[in-house]
Amino acid sequence: MSQLSTQIPEGYVKVFSRPRSLSDAKYTYCPGCHHGIIGRLIAEAIDELGIQERAVGVAPVGCAVFLFRFYNVDFVQAAHGRACAVATGLKRASPNLIVFTYQGDGDLAAIGTAETVHAANRGENFTVIFVNNQIYGMTGGEMAPTTLPGQRTVTCPEGRDVKLTGHPLKVSEMLAQLDGPVYITRQAVYDARHIQMAKKAILKAFRNQAEGKGFSLVEIVADCPTNFQMSPVEANRWVVEKALQYFPLGDLKVKED
């Protein structure tokens, strides 16, 4: 495998580079998928807060199943949906670790609903990055709890019929009702401005943990060009024009002390 040179020629100033917390492994995500951007934002946040040596990630089952390869931090692989329970065990055992889970909508909002709600309600002091792309990616584009009404997937080929399969699950709105969490926010990464906003949210969520404040969740409304059967540009547009209709951006809960 050829490596890009990291040597900076004389007279040049380095303005952009790979975060230290990201490993050299190549992403396994599809072109145009937002996971890559989100993954990088987490690494930048870890670097900026100087917590690489005590960070532990909890990898989900889903497209991010290989997450542990992409970071220079300790990682544990959780069973599908159980990341918040695993993170609870880790953090309770070693409160000095900075623990984060990274979960998709199937993992966090379907099979892992109970673990998520109860960890949030207990105010567990860890950070959840929740990638809501309205579909099951890795298994082949099935309907997710967050799939939009009318949206076609391989398991709702005529489009999601809310009478049969319910409505898009608004996890962040639900969790914001609880007393446990300190920070629940919904962000997106479809353009540069929103990437910067999402980065700030991720930083805040990690900082909350480092300061011992409690449970923070950053939902990121993302795309899935492959399973949407769209080009990256079209999928990006879908987020703005369709997904955000159901999942409006902004802070849902900010508990200041």
Binding site: A79, R82, A85, T88, G89, A93
Partner: peptide
Amino acid sequence: NMVYGAAAAG
């Protein structure tokens, strides 16, 4: 799964 997390912490 909490046991799994705590065991992973050693």
